[in-house]
Simulated scan of single mutants.
Amino acid sequence: MSLPQPPACHLLRTLVHDAYARKLDDGGSPPGDKQQLLDDAGRRQALLRRVRRTLAARRDELSTAASARRGIAEIVDGPRRPG
């Protein structure tokens, strides 16, 4: 994919301004400080998906083994944020 030069330059300036990229003296633009935040957020989301799958499997196992009144109804992140 290639962008015309004016939009590409504007996009790069915006990324540098918002700290997602850095501008080097030689014209290079490596990832900036906020790039790490994006990487960390992606890893947290992947971990959360794995944990939810595991907990859902355990819920299913327990609800099969337990009586209907003692089964696990749902897995949620917290009382104010359902899964």
Rank of each mutant, 00 (worst) to 15 (best):
M1P: 02
M1S: 09
S2Y: 07
S2E: 06
P4C: 08
P4V: 03
Q5N: 13
Q5Y: 13
Q5P: 15
P7E: 07
P7S: 02
A8S: 10
A8D: 08
C9G: 12
H10S: 14
H10W: 14
L11I: 14
L11A: 15
L12C: 10
R13V: 08
T14D: 10
T14N: 03
T14M: 10
L15D: 04
L15E: 07
H17S: 14
H17M: 09
D18A: 10
A19C: 06
A19W: 06
A19N: 08
A19I: 01
A19F: 03
Y20G: 07
A21N: 09
A21E: 00
R22F: 09
R22A: 11
K23N: 12
K23V: 12
L24K: 07
D25L: 03
G27K: 01
G27R: 03
G27Q: 06
S29T: 15
P30F: 03
P30M: 05
P30H: 01
P31E: 04
P31R: 06
P31A: 02
G32D: 04
K34Q: 07
K34I: 05
Q35Y: 15
L37R: 11
L37M: 09
L37Q: 13
L38N: 04
D39W: 12
D39G: 09
D39P: 05
A41R: 15
A41C: 13
A41W: 15
G42E: 12
G42M: 09
G42N: 15
G42D: 12
G42T: 14
R44S: 08
R44T: 07
R44I: 15
Q45I: 15
Q45M: 13
A46L: 13
A46H: 12
L48H: 14
L48S: 13
R49Q: 13
R49K: 14
R50K: 13
V51T: 09
V51G: 04
R52E: 05
R52T: 11
R53K: 14
R53P: 06
R53Q: 11
T54Y: 15
T54N: 03
T54K: 08
A56L: 13
A56S: 14
A57H: 08
A57D: 05
A57F: 00
R59W: 08
R59N: 02
D60K: 00
D60E: 05
D60W: 01
E61V: 01
L62A: 02
L62H: 10
L62I: 00
S63R: 06
T64K: 04
T64F: 09
A65Y: 06
A65H: 04
A65W: 01
S67M: 00
S67C: 01
S67P: 10
S67Y: 04
A68R: 04
A68P: 10
R69Y: 11
R69I: 03
R69T: 10
G71Q: 11
G71F: 08
G71H: 11
I72L: 13
I72W: 11
A73K: 11
A73M: 06
A73V: 15
E74H: 05
E74V: 13
E74I: 09
I75D: 03
V76D: 06
D77Y: 02
D77E: 02
D77T: 01
D77P: 08
G78Y: 02
G78F: 04
G78M: 02
G78K: 00
P79Q: 03
P79F: 08
P79L: 00
R80Q: 01
R81A: 00
R81D: 07
R81M: 05
P82T: 02
P82G: 06
G83A: 04
G83N: 01
G83V: 02
